[in-house]
C-alpha cells in the first residue's frame, strides 16, 4: 500500500477526504427530506412555503403548526392509539417468541420437527395474501373497528419465533447440560441460562416489533372505520386527504409520527448494529 508500513485498516488523508465527502453527500440525500419537512413544520403562516427561492431555515420559526394540527385532528389521541397497539405487539412478541423459541431450540419432544416446519412454512406467505381473511376472522372474534383488532394478528409473529430459536441454539450445550444435571427446572434454565444469553436478539425483536406496529398502515386502514380509533399513520392519511392542503400542518403531523420512532431507534440501535457487524442479521 502507498505509504508503506500502514496496516490494511489505515486510511490515507486523501481517502479520508473522499470518504467523508461521499458520506456527507449520501447524508444529504437520506436526511435532507426529513429536515426539509421539519423546516416546513416550523414556518409561520406569513412565510411563503411555495416560493421558488425557499429558505431552509424558517424565517419566522413557530410551534403554532403543532398546536393547530392537534386542533384539526386529535393527533395526541392517535399517538396514544398507536402506542397502545405497539405496546401489545411488543409485549406479545417478546414473551411469546421467547417461550416458543426456547422450546423449539432447547427442549427435545415428539412433534418438534413438524412444529418447526410449520413455523418455517408461514414465511413463504406474504402477509398481504391473508389480510382479507384475517379481517374476516378478527371481525368474527368481535374485534372489528377496535385497537385490539389492530394489534392482534401481529402480536406474535412467526419470524420472531424463529429468530429467538436461532439465538437460543447458539448457547453452548455444555452450560445447559450442567444445569440439567444440577436438577434445574425448565423455567430456571430459561430464566437463568437462556435469557441472559439472548438479550441481543431479544432487543432486535423488541425494536422491530415496535417499528412494525408504529409504522403499519395497510392493516389498521382495513380494520378501523371510526376516526376516533385511528392510529397515527391512518390519521395522517385522513388529515392529508380530508382536512387540509396546508403543507405546514401536514409537516407538523408527520414530525409527530416520525420523531418517537427515531428516539426509540437511537436509544436501542447499538444492539442492532452489533448484531449486524457480527454477521447475525440477514434481513
Amino acid at each position: 500500500m502507498a505509504g508503506g508500513g500502514r496496516g490494511f485498516n489505515g486510511v490515507s488523508p486523501v481517502e479520508k477526504v473522499v470518504r467523508y465527502t461521499l458520506l456527507v453527500f449520501v447524508l444529504v440525500i437520506t436526511i435532507g427530506p426529513f429536515l426539509w419537512q421539519l423546516s416546513t413544520s416550523l414556518k409561520g403562516i406569513g412565510e411563503d412555503v411555495y416560493t421558488q427561492t425557499p429558505s431552509f431555515i424558517p424565517q419566522q420559526p413557530t410551534l403554532g403548526n403543532y398546536a393547530e394540527v392537534t386542533e384539526t385532528i386529535p393527533v395526541w389521541a392517535y399517538a396514544g392509539n398507536s402506542l397502545f397497539v405497539a405496546f401489545i405487539v411488543v409485549a406479545g412478541n417478546a414473551v411469546g417468541a421467547t417461550l416458543a423459541g426456547f422450546a423449539l431450540a432447547k427442549l427435545r419432544f415428539r412433534g418438534s420437527k413438524p412444529a418447526l416446519g410449520l413455523f418455517l412454512a408461514t414465511l413463504v406467505l406474504p402477509g398481504e395474501v391473508t389480510i382479507i381473511s384475517q379481517y374476516v376472522i378478527v371481525r368474527g372474534l368481535g374485534f372489528a373497528d377496535s385497537l385490539v383488532g389492530v394489534a392482534l394478528p401481529g402480536a406474535l409473529q412467526m419470524l420472531n419465533v424463529l429468530l429467538m430459536r436461532t439465538a437460543f441454539l447458539s448457547i453452548p450445550k455444555d452450560i445447559d447440560s450442567a444445569a440439567i444435571i444440577d436438577g434445574a427446572t425448565v423455567w430456571q434454565r430459561l430464566v437463568h441460562i437462556g435469557l441472559p444469553n439472548v438479550r441481543g436478539m431479544l432487543s432486535v425483536v423488541v425494536i422491530f416489533s415496535f417499528i412494525y406496529a408504529w409504522d403499519d398502515f395497510l392493516w389498521p386502514l382495513i380494520v378501523l372505520t371510526d376516526p376516533d380509533k385511528y392510529t397515527l399513520t391512518v390519521g395522517l392519511q385522513y388529515l392529508n386527504g380530508t382536512f387540509t392542503s396546508n403543507p405546514r400542518l401536514i409537516a407538523a403531523g408527520t414530525m409527530i409520527a416520525f420523531l418517537p420512532i427515531v428516539a426509540v431507534f437511537a436509544v436501542l440501535q447499538r444492539f442492532f448494529f452489533k448484531g449486524v457487524e457480527a454477521g447475525a442479521i440477514k434481513g
Partner: peptide, 22 residues
C-alpha cells in the same frame, strides 16, 4: 452516518410518502 442512512427504513411509509408528496 450508519444510523442516518438507516433512518428512512424505520420511518413509516406514510410519513415518507407525505414528505415526498410535499
Amino acid at each position: 452516518f450508519r444510523i442516518a442512512f438507516y433512518t428512512p427504513v424505520i420511518a413509516s411509509a406514510v410519513v415518507v410518502g407525505l414528505i415526498w408528496g410535499w
